[in-house]
């Protein structure tokens, strides 16, 4: 009997992160990368006061956490599997730890930052 893979866990996170990233990232990138630097947004749209209250609120914090954390898990899964595409076969266990470990650290860090903002 072949061993059951634990991929479903990572694949589910990858899928959720992929959908979120697909829906949300283009607009966010437009905002932080072009709209705000080029002065196309209202005054204080990305300002300290506004962002603190958004990120500090329960809804805002949860949304930001969801977007950032799921994006990390999505990218980690894809990058890990791409290593295999490029012929990295040995030491895959180590790379798995590195990729998903990084996503895990990113998730914790994001949560920590949001808690710090909320307090």
């Amino acid at each position: 009997m072949s061993k059951r893979s634990h991929e479903p866990i990572f694949w589910s996170l990858f899928g959720a992160g992929g959908v979120v990233a697909a829906l949300v990232l283009p607009a966010l990138v437009l905002i932080t990368g072009l709209a705000w630097p080029l002065g196309l947004m209202s005054d204080g749209a990305l300002g300290y006061e506004r962002m603190s209250s958004v990120a500090g609120s329960l809804l805002g914090g949860l949304v930001l956490f969801g977007v950032i954390a799921l994006t990390f898990w999505h990218a980690a899964h894809r990058i890990f599997h791409s290593l295999h595409d490029f012929g990295v076969h040995r030491g895959l266990g180590v790379w798995k730890m590195v990729c998903y470990g990084a996503a895990f650290v990113g998730t914790l860090w994001t949560a920590g930052a949001l808690v710090a903002i909320a307090i």
Binding site: A21, L25, L28, V29, T32, Y48, M51, S52, A55, L64, V67, I68, T71, F72, H74, A75, A76, R78, I79, H81, S82, D85, G106, W109, T110, A113, L114, A116, I117
Partner: peptide, 23 residues
């Protein structure tokens, strides 16, 4: 297509930097 994940991750890192800076 798979390579987009590198830039997507980069952006998430940028956002985390922003949140850290905000905190």
């Amino acid at each position: 297509r798979e390579g987009t994940s590198v830039f997507v991750a980069l952006y998430a890192l940028l956002l985390v930097w922003g949140l850290t800076a905000l905190a």
